[in-house]
């Protein structure tokens, strides 16, 4: 009796093998569902990506067919002072913004992770700038930075401090843009906050029992535990900084005296104002390589400072 039941149950537990036709149909349906993304990727990402590599070796102005000129665009970059200026501006912004934004975002996330009254309001306030459209916030900051009418300089003058020219001074324009970007770091703050909430409490309890003070708990428990999140945010920050464009386009157009001419802005000017699409493609490929190298460098270095659970 039991054998029979087992046999019957065994038969029931084995799924019937789907027919080939059904498999083919399922596969087709799968491809159909995914096809909008695949078509979009092929037409609007992969093809332009490969085409831009070809164009980077040509002289191309949209109207005439591209002319093959070999590596001249890349050679011209070396001789182009604005290319170097834009590269310097971009590296300056990246080197200043990424570390500062990381430290400040972690610090704010730590504060927002405390159990205090009105926490939801504080979290909302810090995230709020991230939902303001970039163009709108840029225009707001143009006003705030105005040396004649702006709030910041009025305040500095009122307390007897020197008032910089901000966006109108070639020495101050990049720090101004970094300052403005720091205002909008709500997104990494939220990611750090999520990371902080994943740190097990028993680690802190153990640290307290061992006599660790607050700073030691942060440095020896919190930071290692959220280091994968830091890696994630640093890489995103690096990529975003290398592609910095909108704020400079809206607020300064690269001025004064090209002090805020960032790589992506110069690339845009070359492509769509000067119609040097070959040269702009070459710049785009160089930017791609730069981002790739910087990201690989951070990834490689992460073995030394990123802690994944279970490691010694």
């Amino acid at each position: 009796m039991s054998t029979t039941v087992n046999v019957v149950m065994g038969k029931k537990s084995v799924k019937p093998k789907p027919s080939r036709a059904r498999l083919r149909r399922n596969r087709l349906i799968g491809w159909l569902f995914i096809s909008p993304w695949i078509i979009g990727f092929l037409a609007f990402a992969l093809y332009p990506f490969i085409a831009s590599l070809f164009y980077s070796f040509t002289n191309y102005n949209i109207l005439s067919p591209p002319q093959w000129i070999g590596g001249q665009n890349y050679q011209q970059m070396i001789k182009d002072p604005l290319f170097w200026q834009s590269l310097y501006n971009t590296l300056y912004y990246t080197v200043v913004f990424v570390p500062i934004s990381t430290v400040i975002a972690i610090a704010i996330a730590l504060l927002l992770n405390m159990k205090i009254k009105g926490l939801a309001i504080y979290r909302t306030l810090f995230y709020l700038p991230s939902v303001v459209p970039l163009v709108a916030s840029s225009i707001l900051w143009v006003w705030l930075f105005n040396p004649s009418f702006g709030f910041i300089d009025a305040f500095l003058r009122a307390i007897g401090l020197p008032a910089p020219g901000w966006l109108y001074s070639d020495a101050w324009v990049k720090p101004s843009l970094v300052l403005m970007s720091l205002w909008g770091i709500g997104q990494p703050i939220v990611i750090y906050l999520a990371g902080l909430q994943g740190v097990p409490n028993d680690l802190y309890e153990a640290a307290v029992l061992e006599g660790a003070n607050t700073w030691q708990r942060v440095w020896y428990v919190t930071i290692p535990m959220i280091s994968p999140v830091i890696l994630f945010n640093v890489i995103l920050g690096l990529i975003g900084s290398f592609q910095y464009f909108t704020q400079a386009y809206v607020m300064t157009q690269g001025g004064p005296d090209n002090s805020s001419l960032f790589f992506a802005l110069y690339l845009y000017q070359q492509a769509f104002q000067c119609l040097h699409l070959g040269y702009a493609s070459a710049m785009a490929w160089l930017l791609f390589v730069l981002i790739l190298v910087a990201t690989l460098f951070v990834f490689r270095s992460s073995a030394r400072w990123v802690y994944y659970g279970g490691e010694q």
Binding site: N146, P147, S148, F149, G150, Y168, S169, P256
Partner: peptide, 14 residues
């Protein structure tokens, strides 16, 4: 220069 520039730009929309 910087102040004149800021003065003129700051009038925009004022």
């Amino acid at each position: 220069y910087t102040q004149v520039n800021a003065f003129e730009k700051g009038l925009t929309g004022a």
